[in-house]
Design a protein around this nucleic acid. Structure first.
Ligand SMILES: [Mn+2]
Ligand SMILES: [Mn+2]
Ligand SMILES: [Mn+2]
Ligand SMILES: [Mn+2]
Lengths: 218, 218
DNA sequence: AAAAATTTTTAGATTAGACTAAATGGTATA
DNA sequence: TATACCATTTAGTCTAATCTAAAAATTTTT
């Protein structure tokens, strides 16, 4: 049984290892969790002891198979709760993440099974992220960042890679949502910003940072 | 902001003070929480420091107005979650308490407001206990324990005073539920047990302990 | 390849919350 | 009123999770 803190470390490390593919550094973990490297060293020793991570001094950590399974269950709970908050309790997509950070640590297999059933087995959460099933299996839709799309193309928003309220409220403001159509009008070489039209309506300039966090498909 | 442990102590102390009316002893708290008296002394010092309890050495504690308000909010959350689990996720009434013990500590005023709305502002939880509103107000139905009812009377079950799975499963077995009709057939002076008929069907003997934990109205 | 810079680990301290054992206060009883 | 008994508090220890400062390992620069 993992503690809240252990689950939070595991989740962060799992996400980092997915992004990079390589072993995860102490500092990278400290940065994403807003803790100090010394605290991370302590915790990764504890998690290695539990067989969740494999770890060699000064060489970073890797998530074990057992760790991967555990991480996916926490992610499953996080995303199911986010879906519940939006679908049933009428939360906006920018209001759910912090509450889900708490709810994801509730321990009750029955609760999660019933919640999943109540939501009719959703496959994606309000941010377009896939929800793993009880066995940790999930399917991501093929998708690329808007930043990599050529001028002239029309694409559909599939997911957002940042679930901070600031980013999501900005997307609300420019009329972007999961399923919205985005037409690429122009690319500015200088700073990588783009001119796009959303749902055949508003035409806006979006920064490189924004275009990297909106993922789309044809 | 109270920690999980602080909220659990507060809730236990509040319930004890409601039962007895008087100031609550260190040992009574230790007993209900399955901790040691020394741990309780530590915690009640901390809670006094926060203005939640008033405390004089060797004289027990009392819950302050601030403490009462906080306790009722935790109780509100506990009972709303129990109601959610039964009404929406099809939990049986004996399965909800332990999960609600976890869920009651989630911090999000919006979540609780929306949950209350989603459940259509329920007044009573699955065990017949009243659910305080946002201001801590609630109305209990007039009720007495079956043990105090005279032979020959017919009464309706309003609440149960014990929410352990063991007790609730026993009630399921003898066909008793909130709203069930109980007719008092006989009282045994020797051990205080009673013979009762439930919903004009099953006739059973219930122990004094059971009859004290089923509360009823005419 | 040596020096410098950076990353990581270790050592030691702190806080919340728990425990055991010992000391102390309060109450009942002879 | 002295003694015994029980309740409560204090003192000291432990673990999880955090921190700072210092030491050690690794990586980058010269
Ligand atoms: Mn999230
Ligand atoms: Mn999400
Ligand atoms: Mn309960
Ligand atoms: Mn209840």
């Amino acid at each position: 049984m993992l503690s809240f803190a252990e689950e939070n470390y595991l989740k962060a490390i799992y996400h980092l290892s997915e992004q990079t593919g390589e072993s995860v550094s102490t500092n990278a973990i400290a940065d994403t969790l807003n803790t100090k490297a010394a605290s991370v060293t302590d915790m990764i020793k504890r998690l290695s002891g539990k067989g969740i991570l494999s770890y060699q001094k000064y060489k970073g950590v890797q998530v074990s198979e057992k760790g991967r399974k555990a991480a996916l269950q926490v992610i499953r709970k996080h995303r199911l709760w986010e879906t519940f908050l939006v679908e049933k309790l009428k939360f906006n997509w920018d209001e759910v993440h912090d509450v889900a950070e708490q709810l994801e640590h509730i321990k009750s297999p029955l609760l999660i099974r019933r919640l999943d059933e109540f939501l009719a087995y959703p496959k994606y959460d309000p941010h377009g992220d896939p929800i793993p099933d009880e066995n940790g299996e999930y399917k991501s839709k093929p998708q690329v960042p808007v930043s990599s799309c050529d001028v002239g193309r029309s694409v559909i928003v599939v997911s957002v890679q940042d679930d901070s309220p600031e980013f999501l409220q900005y997307l609300d403001k420019i009329g972007t949502y999961i399923g919205a159509k985005i037409r690429i009008l122009d690319k500015v070489g200088f700073d990588g910003s783009m001119e796009v039209q959303i749902d055949n309506k508003k035409t806006v300039f979006i920064s490189r940072e924004v275009s990297e966090n909106i993922w789309v498909t044809d």
